[in-house]
Computed example of a mutant assay.
Amino acid sequence: MGQVLISVLTAGEGPGLDLMAGGLVDRYKAAGVDPPVALYVDCGCCKEVGETKLKARFSEWPNLIVRLDIWHFMRRLAVGCTTDAHQMYPTFMARMSACIFEWDAADVNKLREAKRAHLKGHSWTSLTEKQLDRQITKEELELHCRRRTRGEEQTIQLLDQLIGELISDKGKDSLGVPLLDPIRMQHIWFVQKRHVKCIRDPPDVALYTQTGTIIKGGVQLQTLRCARGSTSLESFHCHLNRFIEGKQCQLP
Protein backbone atom coordinates (compact mmCIF):
# COMPACT_ATOMS: atom_id res chain seq x y z
CA MET A 1 0.00 0.00 0.00
CA GLY A 2 3.04 2.26 -0.16
CA GLN A 3 3.13 2.80 3.60
CA VAL A 4 6.14 3.17 5.90
CA LEU A 5 5.31 0.90 8.84
CA ILE A 6 8.45 1.32 10.92
CA SER A 7 11.43 3.65 10.62
CA VAL A 8 14.52 3.10 12.76
CA LEU A 9 17.62 5.30 12.90
CA THR A 10 20.73 3.27 13.78
CA ALA A 11 24.49 3.72 13.75
CA GLY A 12 24.84 0.47 11.81
CA GLU A 13 23.08 -2.71 10.78
CA GLY A 14 23.32 -5.64 13.14
CA PRO A 15 21.62 -7.31 16.13
CA GLY A 16 20.03 -3.99 17.05
CA LEU A 17 17.60 -4.52 14.18
CA ASP A 18 16.20 -7.66 15.84
CA LEU A 19 13.91 -5.54 18.01
CA MET A 20 12.63 -3.72 14.93
CA ALA A 21 11.97 -7.00 13.13
CA GLY A 22 10.22 -8.43 16.18
CA GLY A 23 8.08 -5.32 16.48
CA LEU A 24 7.10 -5.54 12.82
CA VAL A 25 6.08 -9.18 13.21
CA ASP A 26 4.01 -8.27 16.29
CA ARG A 27 2.25 -5.46 14.42
CA TYR A 28 1.12 -7.86 11.70
CA LYS A 29 -0.15 -10.25 14.37
CA ALA A 30 -2.03 -7.53 16.23
CA ALA A 31 -3.62 -6.27 13.02
CA GLY A 32 -4.66 -9.77 11.97
CA VAL A 33 -2.98 -9.25 8.59
CA ASP A 34 -1.30 -12.01 6.59
CA PRO A 35 2.50 -11.65 6.67
CA PRO A 36 4.38 -10.41 3.60
CA VAL A 37 5.32 -12.92 0.91
CA ALA A 38 8.40 -11.11 -0.42
CA LEU A 39 11.17 -9.03 1.11
CA TYR A 40 13.66 -7.03 -1.01
CA VAL A 41 17.09 -6.35 0.47
CA ASP A 42 20.45 -4.90 -0.55
CA CYS A 43 22.49 -7.69 1.08
CA GLY A 44 22.09 -10.96 2.97
CA CYS A 45 19.75 -12.41 0.35
CA CYS A 46 21.23 -15.90 0.23
CA LYS A 47 23.85 -18.19 1.72
CA GLU A 48 25.51 -21.27 0.25
CA VAL A 49 25.20 -23.26 3.47
CA GLY A 50 22.67 -22.83 6.26
CA GLU A 51 20.15 -20.10 6.97
CA THR A 52 20.83 -16.40 6.48
CA LYS A 53 20.68 -13.98 9.40
CA LEU A 54 17.74 -12.30 7.71
CA LYS A 55 15.70 -15.51 7.54
CA ALA A 56 16.49 -16.15 11.19
CA ARG A 57 15.41 -12.60 12.06
CA PHE A 58 12.01 -13.24 10.46
CA SER A 59 11.76 -16.87 11.52
CA GLU A 60 8.08 -16.41 12.44
CA TRP A 61 7.42 -15.85 8.73
CA PRO A 62 8.77 -19.18 7.42
CA ASN A 63 7.29 -18.70 3.94
CA LEU A 64 8.87 -15.29 3.41
CA ILE A 65 10.73 -15.07 0.06
CA VAL A 66 13.89 -12.95 0.22
CA ARG A 67 15.02 -11.28 -3.01
CA LEU A 68 18.03 -9.12 -3.81
CA ASP A 69 17.02 -5.67 -5.05
CA ILE A 70 17.78 -5.59 -8.77
CA TRP A 71 19.14 -2.04 -8.74
CA HIS A 72 21.69 -3.03 -6.08
CA PHE A 73 22.61 -6.08 -8.17
CA MET A 74 23.22 -3.85 -11.18
CA ARG A 75 25.29 -1.46 -9.09
CA ARG A 76 27.47 -4.36 -7.98
CA LEU A 77 28.26 -5.17 -11.61
CA ALA A 78 28.80 -1.50 -12.42
CA VAL A 79 31.77 -1.49 -10.02
CA GLY A 80 33.61 -3.24 -12.86
CA CYS A 81 33.47 -0.03 -14.92
CA THR A 82 36.57 2.14 -15.12
CA THR A 83 34.41 5.20 -14.36
CA ASP A 84 30.73 6.06 -14.28
CA ALA A 85 31.57 9.17 -16.33
CA HIS A 86 32.41 6.99 -19.35
CA GLN A 87 30.45 7.76 -22.53
CA MET A 88 29.08 4.22 -22.66
CA TYR A 89 28.12 3.92 -18.99
CA PRO A 90 24.43 4.86 -19.48
CA THR A 91 24.22 2.43 -22.41
CA PHE A 92 25.75 -0.33 -20.28
CA MET A 93 23.21 0.20 -17.48
CA ALA A 94 20.28 0.31 -19.93
CA ARG A 95 21.39 -2.86 -21.72
CA MET A 96 21.99 -4.62 -18.40
CA SER A 97 18.40 -3.80 -17.41
CA ALA A 98 17.19 -5.23 -20.74
CA CYS A 99 19.10 -8.45 -20.00
CA ILE A 100 17.21 -8.81 -16.71
CA PHE A 101 13.71 -7.53 -17.58
CA GLU A 102 11.19 -7.99 -20.36
CA TRP A 103 8.08 -5.85 -20.87
CA ASP A 104 4.60 -7.33 -20.99
CA ALA A 105 3.80 -7.48 -24.71
CA ALA A 106 0.06 -6.83 -24.30
CA ASP A 107 0.66 -3.72 -22.16
CA VAL A 108 3.23 -2.35 -24.62
CA ASN A 109 0.94 -2.89 -27.61
CA LYS A 110 -1.88 -1.06 -25.79
CA LEU A 111 0.45 1.85 -25.05
CA ARG A 112 1.58 1.94 -28.68
CA GLU A 113 -2.03 2.06 -29.81
CA ALA A 114 -2.77 4.95 -27.47
CA LYS A 115 0.43 6.81 -28.38
CA ARG A 116 -0.20 6.48 -32.12
CA ALA A 117 -3.77 7.79 -31.75
CA HIS A 118 -2.53 10.63 -29.55
CA LEU A 119 0.16 11.66 -32.07
CA LYS A 120 -2.30 11.49 -34.96
CA GLY A 121 -4.37 14.06 -33.13
CA HIS A 122 -1.31 16.33 -33.28
CA SER A 123 -0.74 15.78 -37.03
CA TRP A 124 1.86 13.03 -36.60
CA THR A 125 0.83 10.53 -39.26
CA SER A 126 2.42 7.56 -41.06
CA LEU A 127 4.79 6.70 -38.23
CA THR A 128 6.79 3.49 -38.50
CA GLU A 129 7.03 1.19 -35.48
CA LYS A 130 10.57 2.41 -34.74
CA GLN A 131 9.55 6.06 -34.99
CA LEU A 132 6.58 5.41 -32.73
CA ASP A 133 8.70 3.63 -30.13
CA ARG A 134 11.10 6.59 -30.02
CA GLN A 135 8.18 8.81 -29.00
CA ILE A 136 7.28 6.59 -26.03
CA THR A 137 9.11 7.78 -22.94
CA LYS A 138 10.58 5.65 -20.17
CA GLU A 139 8.13 7.28 -17.74
CA GLU A 140 5.16 6.21 -19.90
CA LEU A 141 6.41 2.62 -20.04
CA GLU A 142 6.85 2.45 -16.27
CA LEU A 143 3.45 4.04 -15.61
CA HIS A 144 1.36 1.93 -17.99
CA CYS A 145 3.28 -1.33 -18.59
CA ARG A 146 4.27 -4.24 -16.41
CA ARG A 147 7.58 -6.00 -16.73
CA ARG A 148 8.94 -9.23 -15.37
CA THR A 149 12.34 -10.80 -14.86
CA ARG A 150 13.64 -13.27 -17.39
CA GLY A 151 14.56 -16.84 -16.51
CA GLU A 152 17.78 -17.52 -14.64
CA GLU A 153 19.57 -19.26 -17.52
CA GLN A 154 18.49 -16.67 -20.08
CA THR A 155 19.59 -13.79 -17.83
CA ILE A 156 23.02 -15.34 -17.26
CA GLN A 157 23.43 -15.97 -20.98
CA LEU A 158 22.47 -12.39 -21.92
CA LEU A 159 24.71 -10.83 -19.26
CA ASP A 160 27.58 -13.09 -20.35
CA GLN A 161 27.16 -11.83 -23.90
CA LEU A 162 26.91 -8.20 -22.83
CA ILE A 163 29.99 -8.31 -20.60
CA GLY A 164 31.99 -10.24 -23.22
CA GLU A 165 31.06 -7.70 -25.89
CA LEU A 166 31.94 -4.65 -23.80
CA ILE A 167 35.24 -6.09 -22.61
CA SER A 168 36.29 -6.14 -26.27
CA ASP A 169 37.06 -3.12 -28.44
CA LYS A 170 33.30 -2.45 -28.70
CA GLY A 171 33.46 -1.24 -25.11
CA LYS A 172 35.85 1.62 -25.88
CA ASP A 173 34.80 5.21 -26.38
CA SER A 174 35.86 7.54 -29.19
CA LEU A 175 39.21 8.14 -27.45
CA GLY A 176 39.88 4.44 -26.99
CA VAL A 177 39.18 4.42 -23.25
CA PRO A 178 37.64 1.08 -22.18
CA LEU A 179 34.38 1.02 -20.25
CA LEU A 180 35.18 -2.14 -18.28
CA ASP A 181 38.25 -3.25 -16.41
CA PRO A 182 38.56 -6.81 -17.81
CA ILE A 183 40.14 -8.50 -14.79
CA ARG A 184 37.96 -6.77 -12.20
CA MET A 185 34.78 -7.22 -14.24
CA GLN A 186 35.34 -10.93 -14.81
CA HIS A 187 35.94 -11.48 -11.09
CA ILE A 188 32.84 -9.47 -10.12
CA TRP A 189 30.66 -11.36 -12.58
CA PHE A 190 32.04 -14.71 -11.36
CA VAL A 191 31.09 -13.79 -7.78
CA GLN A 192 27.73 -12.16 -8.54
CA LYS A 193 26.48 -14.75 -11.03
CA ARG A 194 25.09 -16.87 -8.22
CA HIS A 195 22.79 -14.01 -7.23
CA VAL A 196 20.88 -14.09 -10.53
CA LYS A 197 18.46 -16.55 -8.91
CA CYS A 198 17.94 -13.99 -6.10
CA ILE A 199 16.68 -11.26 -8.42
CA ARG A 200 13.93 -13.29 -10.11
CA ASP A 201 10.35 -12.29 -9.46
CA PRO A 202 8.73 -14.53 -6.80
CA PRO A 203 6.32 -16.99 -8.44
CA ASP A 204 2.60 -16.25 -8.18
CA VAL A 205 3.17 -12.90 -6.47
CA ALA A 206 1.33 -9.87 -7.89
CA LEU A 207 3.96 -7.12 -7.90
CA TYR A 208 1.80 -4.52 -9.66
CA THR A 209 -1.17 -2.60 -8.30
CA GLN A 210 -3.50 -0.63 -10.56
CA THR A 211 -3.85 2.86 -9.13
CA GLY A 212 -6.25 4.24 -11.75
CA THR A 213 -6.81 4.82 -15.48
CA ILE A 214 -6.22 7.62 -17.96
CA ILE A 215 -7.43 8.26 -21.50
CA LYS A 216 -4.78 8.89 -24.15
CA GLY A 217 -5.74 9.20 -27.81
CA GLY A 218 -9.16 7.83 -26.97
CA VAL A 219 -7.62 4.66 -25.53
CA GLN A 220 -7.98 3.81 -21.85
CA LEU A 221 -4.67 2.96 -20.17
CA GLN A 222 -4.16 1.61 -16.66
CA THR A 223 -1.77 3.38 -14.32
CA LEU A 224 0.39 1.04 -12.27
CA ARG A 225 2.57 1.02 -9.18
CA CYS A 226 5.22 -1.65 -8.76
CA ALA A 227 6.14 -3.16 -5.40
CA ARG A 228 9.35 -4.72 -6.67
CA GLY A 229 12.63 -3.63 -5.13
CA SER A 230 13.67 -1.24 -2.40
CA THR A 231 13.45 1.98 -4.39
CA SER A 232 10.61 3.33 -2.27
CA LEU A 233 12.69 2.70 0.85
CA GLU A 234 15.82 4.26 -0.64
CA SER A 235 13.90 7.41 -1.57
CA PHE A 236 12.82 7.61 2.08
CA HIS A 237 16.30 8.97 2.80
CA CYS A 238 15.39 12.08 0.81
CA HIS A 239 12.55 12.83 3.20
CA LEU A 240 14.48 12.46 6.45
CA ASN A 241 15.50 16.12 6.48
CA ARG A 242 11.83 17.06 6.30
CA PHE A 243 10.87 14.82 9.20
CA ILE A 244 13.73 15.81 11.52
CA GLU A 245 13.60 19.47 12.47
CA GLY A 246 16.76 21.52 12.78
CA LYS A 247 19.37 23.31 10.71
CA GLN A 248 20.73 21.60 7.64
CA CYS A 249 24.43 21.56 6.90
CA GLN A 250 26.58 20.17 4.14
CA LEU A 251 30.02 18.75 4.66
CA PRO A 252 32.78 20.11 2.40
Rank of each mutant, 00 (worst) to 15 (best):
W124H: 11
D69S: 05
A94K: 15
V79H: 12
W71S: 08
V79F: 09
E129D: 13
Q154V: 12
A105R: 07
W124L: 10
D104K: 12
L143K: 13
L119G: 00
D107F: 01
R76D: 07
C81I: 04
K115R: 04
A85E: 11
T91N: 12
A105N: 09
R76T: 08
T82I: 14
L119M: 07
L143R: 12
T128F: 03
A105E: 15
H122I: 06
G80W: 06
R147Q: 13
D69W: 08
Q87I: 07
E113S: 01
E102G: 04
T91L: 15
E139M: 10
T155C: 08
F92T: 03
T155Q: 11
I136S: 03
V79E: 12
K120A: 00
H72I: 14
V79R: 15
T128R: 00
T155L: 05
T155N: 06
S126Q: 11
M74F: 06
T82D: 12
A98W: 06
A78D: 11
A117G: 01
S123Y: 00
I100E: 02
R134W: 08
T83G: 09
G151Q: 11
C145I: 01
K138D: 09
T83D: 08
T83R: 15
D107R: 04
R112F: 01
Q154S: 11
D133Y: 01
L141F: 10
E152N: 11
W124V: 08
T125A: 02
D104R: 11
S123C: 05
S123F: 00
M88Q: 11
R134H: 08
K120C: 02
M93W: 06
K130M: 10
I100G: 04
R148N: 06
G151C: 09
W103N: 05
